[in-house]
Design a protein around this nucleic acid. Structure first.
Lengths: 214, 214
DNA sequence: ACCGGATTCTATAGATCAATAGATAGATCG
DNA sequence: CGATCTATCTATTGATCTATAGAATCCGGT
């Protein structure tokens, strides 16, 4: 028992010695199941039993992988925000017009819905239920991401590329709101492809739906 | 005990004889408390004890007013959708331009956030947790509302007032998504007034943020 | 002041849930 | 083969939650 290293998923640093590939794969399966159930039923609506059922194991066996349900939520949420900031920062750093940047930001926001939908949905909808410490951690990443968007818009206004009668913060909230709602209906009756939605949403944001030639 | 009529809140028809005004007032207070707690913590995150705490009464006393937590959610959600369809239909029936209609639809959607925020938030975020029968009832109202918006946009496109390169359904979802997110951040750090948001959001939807004179 | 209904209370049943403790089967490796 | 590690299991605890039953209190009308 002295040197027994449990592979229990942790929020802090990685384990001192790298885990076997099989361990990491299984941990990832466990987290996938948690994300799926959290996304479907919400954090409080989902029981650890539900997660175990998806995996075909016993409820108590989950605790070999994480020490509490709250930690599981934190891990799912962190994987849900993961990459958003970087992807947005990459777009913002490009030498393209403000309009093209907005288009790129929308694309970058919607892209993860294709391969990490459950994680993203959980991050978007359940992060409010994180314990204070975790919420602060996730909120920090989230706010940094929002600031990138806001800056792109503010700079676009300053350069004259974007209208100056629109509040950058409200514009940011509008973009985020539109994109967030996509994760709610995507795959739930509506049958649009992500790239199509990104293209249309970017157009709505940039030129609106009004016909200028009317 | 024979003729004791409990004022228990019901989803179906109204009680055969009108209740005393005090009864109705108290029922409304109970529902306000439920809406507040559901909006704050979510349906499963909220306990009936939480609702009772807001009212300063015992948890079991709530069951004098509703027969189950699920029924309470249904009542809150119904009051949350209430009026949306009518308000939108009124806007759609007016003899104004499509652009003005879109503006009116945004205003009509955001207006209830001023005086019924908890009900609307609960409807928007918790309706998914309703039992099937209730969800069908609420979903019907909800879908009828969406159709009004969609029709306004489709007609605007047909008349040439709105761009024809935008999918009406996606446009509807964009409008709804933007407006839904408002209920999430309104009063939570952001300090915008509802009419200001409505004005800006309508502008974003209609003419976008791109500066046409650039 | 009393009656009866309206409202809230106490007490508790019954279910579910997160989490712990310890046992056990399977794999790996000397 | 035997020892150790890995992954899962059984069993259970204690907390919490919804809902019910029935007693107690309040209040308006007469």
């Amino acid at each position: 028992m002295r040197s027994q290293r449990k592979p229990e998923l942790q929020a802090k640093g990685a384990s001192p010695r790298a885990a076997a590939p099989n361990q990491r794969r299984r941990q990832s399966e466990i987290l996938d199941a948690a994300a799926k159930v959290f996304a479907e039923r919400g954090y409080y609506g989902a029981s650890t039993q539900d997660i175990a059922d998806v995996l075909g194991i016993r409820q108590a066996s989950l605790y070999y992988y994480f020490s509490s349900k709250e930690i599981a939520l934190e891990l799912v949420c962190l994987k849900g925000v993961e990459g958003f900031f970087e992807a947005a920062a990459d777009v913002a750093a490009k030498e393209i017009s403000a309009a093209e940047k907005v288009h790129g930001l929308v694309e970058a926001h919607l892209a993860p819905l294709m391969d990490r939908a459950d994680y993203v949905k959980t991050f978007l909808n359940e992060r409010q239920y994180l314990p204070p410490a975790s919420r602060k951690k996730v909120g920090k990443l989230s706010r940094a991401y929002e600031k990138v968007i806001e800056k792109v818009i503010a700079e676009g206004i300053a350069s004259g590329e974007l209208r100056k009668d629109i509040d950058p913060r409200l514009m940011t909230l509008a973009l985020l709101g539109m994109c967030k709602s996509v994760s709610a209906w995507m795959g739930k009756g509506e049958s649009y492809q992500v790239p199509v939605v990104a293209e249309q949403y970017a157009r709505i944001l940039l030129v609106g739906i009004g016909n200028p030639r009317h």
